[in-house]
Amino acid sequence: MEEFVGPRLYSCYKRRNRVALHDDIISKGFQAKNRRAFLFSHATNIVVGPKEDRHLMTGLHTVADVYCSDCREVLGWKYERAYEDSQKYKEGKIVLENSRL
């Protein structure tokens, strides 16, 4: 049996561009529309789009879509600002949709 060496990685589903490490997952309990998503502390090889206010399941947030830096597919979003005190922990974090990884 082959032994696994190196960190577990998440990649863009289209071009296999590496975008996040398994060890950077903060929560696996997020939803993106009708899909499961993970909250990451940070990601790489992404482009952050313009900020906009959105009403999400947990209230109003300022977010920006994040795209694969290679193919420009939307992978999820970045929390730029949370208006509720209980949601402040999300600021600066990135949600990536499982179906796009």
Rank of each mutant, 00 (worst) to 15 (best):
D53K: 06
R8S: 11
R35G: 04
L39V: 02
D65K: 15
H61C: 00
D23T: 13
E91W: 03
R72L: 09
R35W: 10
N98I: 15
P7W: 06
T44N: 10
T58M: 08
K28Q: 09
D70P: 08
N34C: 11
E84H: 08
Y89I: 14
D70I: 15
L96Y: 03
A43M: 08
S69P: 08
N17F: 08
G29W: 01
R100C: 06
Y89H: 13
R35Y: 05
T44S: 08
E52T: 14
D23I: 15
L75I: 07
A20F: 00
K88T: 12
R36N: 10
K14Q: 14
E97H: 03
R54L: 08
K90M: 07
R15E: 10
K90D: 01
V48R: 02
C12D: 07
V48S: 02
E97G: 04
E2F: 09
Y67V: 10
N34H: 12
V47A: 11
F40C: 01
H22C: 14
V5I: 15
G6V: 05
E3T: 15
V63D: 01
K93R: 07
V5E: 04
K28W: 06
K90A: 10
R16W: 10
T62D: 12
K28I: 05
V5A: 13
R15H: 12
